[in-house]
Design a protein around this nucleic acid. Structure first.
Lengths: 190, 190
DNA sequence: GTTGTTGGCCAACGCTTGTTGACAACCCTA
DNA sequence: TAGGGTTGTCAACAAGCGTTGGCCAACAAC
């Protein structure tokens, strides 16, 4: 996404420092409040450089948003452990970097952001769900249920930072959420 | 919040038409993209009237955000039905008006918005939880878990509008989510 | 050493934002 | 019928935004 392995350019340092600053700003401020000027200031360069290397603010944002849910291989797994494994995986994803936080922040206020989120849901979570739900026919619905619980916890824990949710240990979150996710995947339709 | 029952003013129509327009704009656009000018245009008046009657954009927003979770009396209820009753109540809340949508949209991008959300959580959901969880000591944690699932479903269903989540019937949502909420309230700590 | 390319800064543009103050029209009271 | 508060419009403001183009220094190729 950030270009081929092309001949090293002298400007690569600048390019990535812009990208790094943008990642942080978008993650903490959302799309509108993250101004090109502020990002440039963080990166220690002139705002016009952002335009030169990424075309526009939209272009920069597109370069920042590159989500890979990156599920582990679930084929061989004991189906009863799906809940634990998935919740653990999502927690790692949310804590590893800021891109999901960014996407959630922006998806809520920005149409193109929520488009991207729906796209991630449809092209990554749903296909994955098809491989591990009992009946592929209702994979979409079960994926949506899983998304509601996982995104909801991410929301109160990492974005809104409700005290009790933010303070829970990772183990506690897994212990509470895994049975929920497990049920959304394997339980019979109520 | 909107003032005492004071002598009817001629401007009351204007005041409430501003408030109505603001509610819709904030709900659909979030705080930043909902401009005073757009709200005034919707209300059919001059932008300066907004300032006259609400002081500032922040003041207008404060007037819009007045959330009452308004729980039904749960004292006499069969404890096994808590999940169903609560999920049903929350669904009604989300579908009745736009204020919760507004608060969620703004809470995610705006510091004062997330302050308000945390406040609603702490002063309305947690106290309510104390009345119906088995042990008041962990009411906060259980309330946070409930919030994560309820807010998560609201997010994917009403704000992000993931297809499968938005298409579910209200009955299906209740059937799926009620056992989760029930477990978060009454299950022993795992 | 000259020349063309790349990397960077600076100053400005056109636009939109929240907000303000002056001023006209209306209504009620005296 | 005069006067004072209320309701509204209009034009403008200062600030901030994304974005553009010109200019200079550092480098690379010949």
């Amino acid at each position: 996404m950030t270009g081929p392995v092309s001949p090293r350019r002298r400007s690569d340092v600048t390019r990535t420092s812009i990208l790094d600053a943008a990642r942080e700003r978008f993650a903490s401020d959302g799309y509108d409040r993250a101004t090109v000027r502020a990002i440039a200031r963080d990166a220690g360069i002139d705002p016009s450089m952002v335009m030169r290397y990424y075309g526009s603010k939209d272009g920069l944002f597109a370069a920042v948003i590159d989500v890979e849910l990156d599920f582990p291989d679930l084929g061989e797994l004991d189906p009863d452990r799906l809940g634990v494994v998935l919740v653990t995986h999502f927690l790692e994803l949310w804590e590893r970097d800021t891109v999901l936080r960014t996407l959630l922040r922006v998806g809520v206020t920005n149409e193109s952001g929520s488009d991207r989120l729906r796209q991630v849901f449809a092209t990554q979570l749903v296909p994955a769900a098809r491989t591990f739900v009992p009946d592929p026919a209702d994979a979409e619905r079960r994926a949506a249920l899983v998304a509601s619980q996982v995104l909801g916890m991410a929301l109160v824990r990492y974005v809104l930072q409700f005290g009790p949710a933010a303070d829970m240990s990772r183990e506690d979150v897994i212990a509470w959420l895994a049975p929920t996710v497990q049920r959304y995947i394997t339980a019979e339709t109520p």
